[in-house]
Design a protein around this nucleic acid. Structure first.
Lengths: 350, 350
DNA sequence: TTGAAAGCGTTACCAA
DNA sequence: TTGGTAACGCTTTCAA
């Protein structure tokens, strides 16, 4: 190793508290107090120390700080898919709530990849972030239990907890599916189709259940069929669109509930460009998510808006409550209702 | 303070290296070596230590590690706007490259807000991340100089460096604008319009310059007008669309270059739904960015695809090169070419 | 191959 | 109000 004094370092070495103390002519502890308990200092020394901090461009070493304090002030958010505006909204809400409580929020994108999700959970575990927000991929993952076992506070977003030892914030998907179906029924639809991959994605399955409940309530006046898809992307919608076009009129659904907006977008686009069928006259369609990627479709898409921002806010608040251990935090789950947004794609009256 | 032994902690206290050492019956340094220099241990003790680590669920304290090592292994990416797929792609590329080099990447979303950008830069500065990737908002910001002044390695993405003491990875916007205009001219357009807010956004201004260059090369055979917008979102496109519709035929552009895809999407949507004009016959249009939000438009949009993934990769590689100081790193700028993607919105022949 | 001990830059305590 | 000093959990010498 080169001795530290035998050459000039490339960047300016970062000043430490002891440097500030030396220049200001006070002790180390006093500088620390200037930062953490300014009220304990005489105005004169406080002012002097602050000036020196400015001059030297001193910035606290966060690693040392959280080591000494035994607690960090940063929250990590491991997020399933940032390209989905629903989840991005969660991060916005979480960041707001975190900032209000004096915490910083950093993001790690799993990008629909289980291995990366685990890597990121482990990363935050190592970094000893104050806590972790997790919007998980469906399925089992090992990182969660590892994190929990280390006692790291963790709040689950948009997924039901597998065990009851942490908080969770969920959207009421079943109810959303119910609202979607009821809406189409009220618009006069009698032959509904639900599309989505209900096997792989629990939220989609719940939406389907809700739709089925609404249909059941009609005592047979309305029928519901399931059109399974591979995923819920635009491309899957294109395939569904072709299926719908090819059906004989009698077998064609007059109301479609898409498990997600992108799916709906694919359907609309395909049906409009490859047939004479029109929305909402021939087919009414409603999506799910209020995904911004679907906003600029030619036919404004009815949908169920998920309260992403609010979910993020609440999750962060729960997490911070657990971190700060206020009032002997009890784990709980919060379920938020989605909101029906009626646009042209399903509006037949009014 | 409660003594540590007078009550059971709520979560499991996280085991430390000394705990591992005690259980394994070795010294602390040996455990450290087991983690960092496994080759220095006898197979037997190594195995024993690893087993204890497993049993105890020990995870290194990253804060302590980077404090002791004096260097972190995490890179921070302060990103202007995660809802734009161009920037999200950058983060994907950056994460890939970082992972390949053994670094972790964490994200902080500025969400088009200068104050948050500065907050995030300061956060990473405090945390002493190994380095910072920054896709900045246009305009001056204070966080950059603060970070640089502390000697933190930083690479700028999609913005020209204000000073020359750091690397940057840029897209060649001027060339992209040129390609867009040339393409429309080749499709037979003679009256071009460029829309965008060239005053506020340097990249947009450069695209306009490129378009102007292509037009100038025609020696007057083609005309170019500028339609200024407020921003470059769908809503701005709607306004432009209305303007275009209202024009008398002689004054209507037959080729439109939108400064961004979302802008183009707004124009297409408005013109299609509120007039009889058709793309590309009456008006050819081309966007910029290859934004996924515009993929599900009814008319597939021609565009200039930005190499976001590649930009992110390169930026991370430059940053890591600077961090590890390999071969006396020299700062440099890399400029990547956008790629013309011709889709239906502008294809008049072939 | 293993152990002991000196940092790393803070915080928080107790004395002064 | 200030100064001194022992942690915090790890890495990294240097000895054994």
């Amino acid at each position: 190793m080169a001795r530290s004094d035998d050459r000039v370092p490339e960047g300016q070495a970062m000043p430490r508290m002891s440097d500030v103390a030396a220049v200001a002519g006070v002790s180390l502890g006093t500088v620390s107090n200037a930062l953490n308990h300014p009220d304990r200092l005489s105005p004169a020394t406080l002012k002097r120390i602050r000036r020196v901090i400015q001059e030297l461009g001193f910035v606290r070493n966060g690693a040392a700080q959280s080591l000494a304090r035994g607690i960090s002030t940063t929250i990590g958010f491991v997020i399933i898919d940032l390209s989905n505006s629903f989840f991005l909204d969660m991060s916005r809400g979480a960041e707001q709530a975190a900032a209000e409580a004096g915490f910083a929020l950093i993001l790690a994108n799993s990008d629909m990849d289980m291995a990366r999700q685990d890597t990121h959970l482990d990363l935050f575990d190592q970094q000893r972030t104050a806590g972790v927000l997790l919007a998980p991929l469906p399925g089992l993952f090992s990182g969660l239990e590892r994190a929990r076992q280390h006692g790291q506070p963790l709040v689950l977003l948009n997924a039901a907890p597998q065990t009851s030892d942490h908080c969770a914030v969920l959207a009421h998907n079943e109810h959303g599916g119910y609202l979607a179906a009821r809406h189409l029924i009220e618009q006069g639809c009698r032959q509904l189709a639900f599309c989505g991959n209900i096997d792989a994605l629990p939220p989609i399955r719940q939406r389907y259940s809700g739709a089925a409940r609404a249909v059941a309530e009609t005592n047979g006046a309305v029928r519901l069929e399931l059109i399974p898809t591979c995923e819920v992307q635009v491309g899957d919608g294109v395939k569904v669109g072709r299926q719908v076009i090819e059906r004989e009129t009698a077998w064609r659904p007059d109301g479609v509930i898409a498990g997600a907006d992108l799916l709906a977008a694919g359907i609309v686009q395909t049906v409009l460009s490859q047939s004479d069928l029109r929305f909402p006259q021939d087919v009414a369609i409603i999506g799910y998510d209020d995904n911004r990627s679907a906003w600029n479709a030619l036919i404004p898409l009815s949908t169920l808006a998920q309260p992403g921002l609010e979910m993020g806010r609440l999750a962060a608040q729960l997490l911070i409550e657990e971190i700060t251990g206020r009032q002997g935090h009890r784990h709980r789950q919060i379920v938020l209702e989605p909101q029906l947004v009626v646009r042209d794609s399903s509006r037949r009256r009014g």
